[in-house]
Amino acid sequence: MPQVSMTVNGKPATGDVEGRTLLVQFLRDTLHLTGTHVGCDTSQCGACLVHVDGEAIKACSIFALEVEGAEVTTIEGMANADGSLNTIQQAFQDHHGLQCGFCTPGMVMSAAALLKENPKPSETEIRDYLQGNICRCTGYHNIVKAILAASGQETAIAAE
């Protein structure tokens, strides 16, 4: 069985995988990082979104062996060093940007990727960027608000 090595949340991670092992399976089953979720089979829901070498990637649509040598960040690697919530995480809590929590890791990872690319996104840009992250609970309103807040902008969104 081939072996794969990568850096996950700053720590080296190595494991035996099959060719067909997806990154999300490696994270969940081998590394027990169960914060990355699987919500669909067609690369659409985004619950599995992680960062690979700083880019937003759906961990359900990339093989573990394709990530050889890469730097991976998952939701477990997002909090501040002291364990407190980072700015985005805190904004999600402050603005009630989550309910059941299942899509939340992907949402936070997606929001982080967006703000890296575009530190002051508009409401429309946020909604557009979240095309690949489906939430069934919140109706997105408070997620959009949380991301606006995390970017240091007014949270009074359009209709309010």
Partner: peptide, 9 residues
């Protein structure tokens, strides 16, 4: 095309 994560791959 797709969404940002899909566009990255």
């Amino acid at each position: 095309i797709g969404d940002p994560a899909v566009r990255n791959r």
